[in-house]
Design a protein around this nucleic acid. Sequence first.
DNA 1: ATAATAATTGCACTTCCATTGCATTGGTTT
DNA 2: AAACCAATGCAATGGAAGTGCAATTATTAT
Lengths: 137, 137
Amino acid sequence: METIEQVLESRSIRVTAMRMLIYKFLAEKEVAVTLSDIENAFVKADRTTLYRTIKTFEEKAIVHQIDDGTGITKYALCEQGCNCDIKTDLHLHFHCNNCNETICLTDHKIPQIKVPDGFVSENVNLVVKGICDKCSG
Amino acid sequence: METIEQVLESRSIRVTAMRMLIYKFLAEKEVAVTLSDIENAFVKADRTTLYRTIKTFEEKAIVHQIDDGTGITKYALCEQGCNCDIKTDLHLHFHCNNCNETICLTDHKIPQIKVPDGFVSENVNLVVKGICDKCSG
DNA sequence: ATAATAATTGCACTTCCATTGCATTGGTTT
DNA sequence: AAACCAATGCAATGGAAGTGCAATTATTAT
């Protein structure tokens, strides 16, 4: 089991208290979070710091951005083996219309999508919307 | 061939000059447009009017909203037989990373996506990103 | 250890898009 | 023509994303 420090260092991200806390927060969440969510969890920290921390994590492929159609960008920790930095990596996310939460379905692969002649597919954003397991129960 | 008036009336949308112009603009565009695009095309009209017209069209299922991941909402006329009002209707859009345009690929159906037990799929948002036919040529 | 250097954080501000309240105009109906 | 309701225009707000700069903190070199 890797420690948070090791994760950060392995991606050449300097270890700071703030970054460790944010990483921990993301790791404990099982759903994707917005910047506001993080803001509310760390009221003492400045919004900009949180914003830039997430951006750093994103650049270093520790976190990936999710566009679930709500208009607000969400973020989630990349799973072990997630190649968010590679453009051809396929994400599948589920957005619950009831509780408004977005979940990474990492073990559900996206089928190959055919595009017309002349079009080159580089990336696919697939969001399934509906009712999640907690809300449908 | 239906006239614009007929289209609007059949959806119980009152026919006004503004609405006809906006409908015509959308019909002539082969790509999805942003509110700003419409704004630039109708400099004399107020932004709010354009915004509300689009919202009206959306409610009446004449136009559908597209979230292509650029962060800016885009709109496009629904095709003949498009059931945007029905939640189970599946959209497929292509966003060009080069020219930044978004195209509806209405004749490309989305394959059935499996979701885990307990999850109920109501809708799927699928955006393929890459290079469009014009830019790849 | 201390100075020099570089990265991180916090504050203030800006920009952009989406949205709403309210007054005014314009079209329908009786 | 009067009354009514919808559509339009103006002004303003809210929220999220992003940037510049100063202050702080950590790292490196002397």
